[in-house]
Design a binder for these strands. Sequence first.
DNA 1: TAGATTGTTAATCGATTAACAATC
DNA 2: TAGATTGTTAATCGATTAACAATC
Lengths: 212, 212
Amino acid sequence: MLKNSADVSKATVDRLPLYFRTLRQVQSEGIEIISSEDLGRRIGVTPEQIRKDLASFGEFGKKGVGYFVRELIRNISEILGLHRNWNVAIIGVGHLGWALANYRSFSSIGFTVAALFDADPAKIDQYVNGLVVSAIDDLEKIVKERDIHIGVITVPAHEAQDVANRLVAAGVRGIWNFAPVVLKVPEDIWLVSEDLSVGLSSISYYLSRNTK
Amino acid sequence: MLKNSADVSKATVDRLPLYFRTLRQVQSEGIEIISSEDLGRRIGVTPEQIRKDLASFGEFGKKGVGYFVRELIRNISEILGLHRNWNVAIIGVGHLGWALANYRSFSSIGFTVAALFDADPAKIDQYVNGLVVSAIDDLEKIVKERDIHIGVITVPAHEAQDVANRLVAAGVRGIWNFAPVVLKVPEDIWLVSEDLSVGLSSISYYLSRNTK
DNA sequence: TAGATTGTTAATCGATTAACAATC
DNA sequence: TAGATTGTTAATCGATTAACAATC
């Protein structure tokens, strides 16, 4: 039985996918039980951090023993909602959208790319990774038909807010935004923005100072 | 004169690229002066946060007036080290590496993609966005020849650590990692890992709970 | 049993928010 | 000058780390 998640910190939730991925690696090495100490060493996180994060959701370990890898994977998978299927649509089949449409790791954690959209007539009706590109004019219709839960925005910055509005109106509940712009969405829509310029700029910042 | 950066928090540094980008947008709208209040509204950050972040580096505003947009852009650009050129190499010209090689925003903030590497003979000597793909065997030689500062890792997970080791040995000082694996690098190398599964998994987490 | 390791409570650390004096 | 808005200090909030009792 999982605890309620009401008071779980965002930082904790963001570490779970890392635990999940690492545990699958551990499992593939044939390891069946692992301590927070060993898992922490692999990830570069303190064992206390791991124990505290996991304890937010329940008691998954065995005192004096450690965590059963298979069991912990199943539990984290359930916490993250990765045990079920999510249908995602990618809007904007440019370089990045195209790369994401071909991204293998999606399916391995339960995401199905179920629709692709673009405004460019040259791209519409083309196939990408076995899936046809639809006209963005059909967005509302297709999002409903294919029961899309999550929209991935990879259009240019100036089009992103409009696309977000349409996705919300069509019934999408989560948005993963790659356009370099701050989107405004209703309270009940979950928005995650990936800002690639942050990573690169922060490297530049630290290199400029020549010290970690 | 900029303050020393020794005690500036990572959270602050990570917000600077967002301020920078938004200020350029503001500038393109013809606005010359902006208050922390107005800037904060655009970004979705409190005005106090902005003032405190900027104050870590100096006094850039004018009391009772606000911030001169052009001046603030120049200052943030200098803080982030974006006033100079950085040469980056992309290792792994798969879907994602290819998309990044075509990413326009890089050059707009002072990054030059100066080398591409792949292990696949079919890709070597091909041109991507006007740049030839080199054999990964030549990595050390080319990194030195072209004065590469930053390596972008877009190879499969199981090859990433090896690539990181070679980049470090070749003299790269920063690494931007997209492979889903925790890399170990020396203390003096600045490493930023983009973990795409985190964003998507966290959406899944919150949608599963149906509440923000 | 003794050693190991979890889960949890308390202490510390760091980041955000609030308040306000300084000053344009 | 009066109103506006910064920069900074103090208060609050949240997250991490340390310590340790519980227990396998």
